[in-house]
Amino acid sequence: MIHRRHNYILDSILLVLLAGFFIWVVYRLKLGLGYTWNWKVIPQFFLRVHDGRLQMNVLTLGFLTTIRLSFWVVLFSVFIGTFAGILGSGKSVFFKLLVRTYVEFTRNTPPLVLVFIFYFFVGSQLMQVIGVEEWVRNSPLWVKDLIRVLFSTPERFPEFLSAVLTLSLYEGAYITEIVRGGLLSISKGQFEASHALGLSEADTYVFVILPQVFKNILPSLTSQAISVIKDSSIVSIISIQELTFQGMELMASTYLIFEIWITITALYFILTYTLSHLAGRLEKRLIR
């Protein structure tokens, strides 16, 4: 009981300090820098009226792009990480070495450098080789519409895809390590019982091992997915028009530095907070 009240007092003091800090910052901005706030113009960057119709504007578009980008990156990087994690924990020395090289190279290189390497040498070359651009150009309208909903504008689809690939390879290295750790926590007996029952190796992983691994690593995966959302801003340097890119463009044209950064931060926070909240609920359901 005493402990509780003590915490209350401490919390209140911290809150007051925090509020004080913010007031001080705003005050400094106003008096020190002579900054005038102009929040009124922000909403039109979300929605605007164009030709008498309500239209999504840059911030909404960027927000949606960030969501799409993150979604695909989480999906692919979990695939990559699962495969690499399994290969890296197996008996084959060759695959072990291959996976270690991938993980160490990726983790010990600045992400910005990686984005350039992957994007220019891997992504764009690969896109050309498999002829994505042409395929999109020649595809029927409904495919183009589908691409617009799920990925990006059809014109920018190749870039979008290589950004997804780049980020997936980057995040996949971290997920590889998470999966490897998760596999270590599964007892050998689970593999042996599956073997004795005649289950194939693939079935053993899909039905016996991975469900247990994913249940165990869900918290780490969640924080990695949150990293994905944040890291996705890196690809703004290769002109993917996600949230950060749009924010910087807006800033260059409006000079509303603080309003825009605060808005962008809030949007990222909404995404990451929603995600961790959902993951928390999923975790509770799984633990039962």
Binding site: S187, Q212, K215
Partner: peptide, 12 residues
């Protein structure tokens, strides 16, 4: 068929 000392049931 094989039965192990540690059961090795699939817990999930």
């Amino acid at each position: 068929g094989m039965v192990f000392q540690s059961f090795n049931l699939f817990p999930h």
